[in-house]
Design a protein around this nucleic acid. Structure first.
Lengths: 237, 237
DNA sequence: TTTGTATAATTGGTTAACCAGTTCCGATTT
DNA sequence: AAATCGGAACTGGTTAACCAATTATACAAA
């Protein structure tokens, strides 16, 4: 019997426990923003876990902007108050893995925005990159091959052209989940792909013409099929 | 002279070089999805860096869903094609740190959505949590104290009630940056905060009444001041 | 030839010792 | 008494040795 899932959960639970203990420690010691946390060694001893576990937990909290490690100096509470810190740690501990539905929902939201922003801000260089990915997509589809990857790369090119680094990062984060689920559920059959060429071209043209309204509308049209597929499908996704 | 920034850049550049080398290796060896990467030890020897550096780079690519490490077995290329993999690594390497403007822009986009979704999906428990954060915010403002944290916690409560784990995660990721910048530029003076109580209450009521249209509109009103502040301010943000 | 098994090599994960700065405290000097 | 210098202790980061689980291999039995 494979226990991969269980061991993974164990490891995750250890980290969650450590994060919860760090929160309690901050509260108990009334640590203010900018104050120094006990050293990693002390924490590992106090919590009865390895220093590696401590470092991992600290890195996670650092990723969410709640702590800041400074070499040869210490780990410090970020410059947000204890109230926000408590609330956010609470939320982080309860975060669940994203469902496919939430991924698609978020993707559509982000992409309607990137289309509009790209139309407003795209440089000639951005346009060139988009054209290249569009061409690669068209070629692949016309050869009758699967083109999920090229599809997504076109959308990522738009995200890059939006000039919003935060949205760009978020698009990158959700893309692998989108691809694997698409291939898993065979969302894109050839009919959709063939139709997709024209839709992609329409979006490209709108962005090229710097028409944000039209770009957003064309993106909306592009997603209407996908949206229906995901929400009205009889498959449990 | 402090060299923190330089050393940080060095460390980051090392990681970027490793990621680029991993990409080249995948391309050179024609590794397909599901194929196994060389072991961490071999990579560290081949690239001339420590195994720790290799692990860090692998973890980053794992975070973006491009690789998958399996204990006592190996590191595998994720189930997305080589084309998407190349494009995404390219994007990841060029990712820049998010600007405050991009944070605010993204936040508004996400929050208009969470308000609408929360109105559609909120449970009674969600509502209770929102009411608590709203009360905490009101109290703090009425005492004339700074309430940026309580403000954000109310918005995070809405994000949680939206029932979209992806958006919820993204909201958590941008919140610390929002808080620190708000405090840095003193975005919220008392006049805004006092006005904010009513606006928060309006949003709360719309979500309570399960009126998505109104919830979104009230959120929009709430952000109109912030939006103007960030975009028309003479400060370089 | 095929199958089963024991063993050796390989894997990512873990641990503990080590390193190079930083910080802090006290002795020394002015 | 105040300022300054030096060293000890402490910091996060790094490294290398170790671990348990997996996988490949070689050999033996059917």
């Amino acid at each position: 019997m494979k226990l991969d899932i269980l061991t993974t959960n164990d490891s995750e639970n250890v980290q969650k426990k450590i994060i919860a203990q760090i929160r309690e420690l901050i509260n108990f010691k009334n640590l203010e923003p900018g104050d120094k946390l006990p050293s990693e060694r002390m924490l590992s001893e106090k919590f009865g876990v390895s220093r590696g576990n401590i470092r991992e937990a600290i890195q996670k909290l650092e990723f969410y902007g709640l702590l800041k490690s400074i070499p040869q100096s210490g780990t410090f509470v970020a410059n947000i108050g204890v109230i926000a810190l408590n609330g956010m740690i609470e939320d982080i501990l309860r975060l669940e893995d994203p469902s496919f539905k939430s991924l698609v929902e978020t993707r559509i939201l982000l992409e309607l925005k990137t289309a509009r922003l790209a139309a407003l801000r795209r440089t000639d260089e951005d346009l060139k990159a988009m054209a290249q990915t569009l061409e690669a997509y068209t070629e692949k589809v016309n050869k009758g091959e699967d083109a999920v990857q090229e599809d997504l790369l076109f959308h990522l090119a738009i995200a890059k052209a939006s000039g919003n680094s935060t949205i760009n990062t978020f698009m990158l984060m959700i893309t692998p989940g989108i691809i694997t689920n698409f291939e898993k559920y065979h969302v894109c059959d050839k009919g959709l792909a063939q139709k997709g060429i024209q839709e992609h071209y329409d979006i490209y043209e709108a962005i090229k013409d710097q028409n944000p309204q039209l770009a957003k509308q064309k993106m909306k049209d592009h997603f209407s099929v996908l949206y229906q597929y995901c929400y009205n499908s009889d498959k449990e996704i």
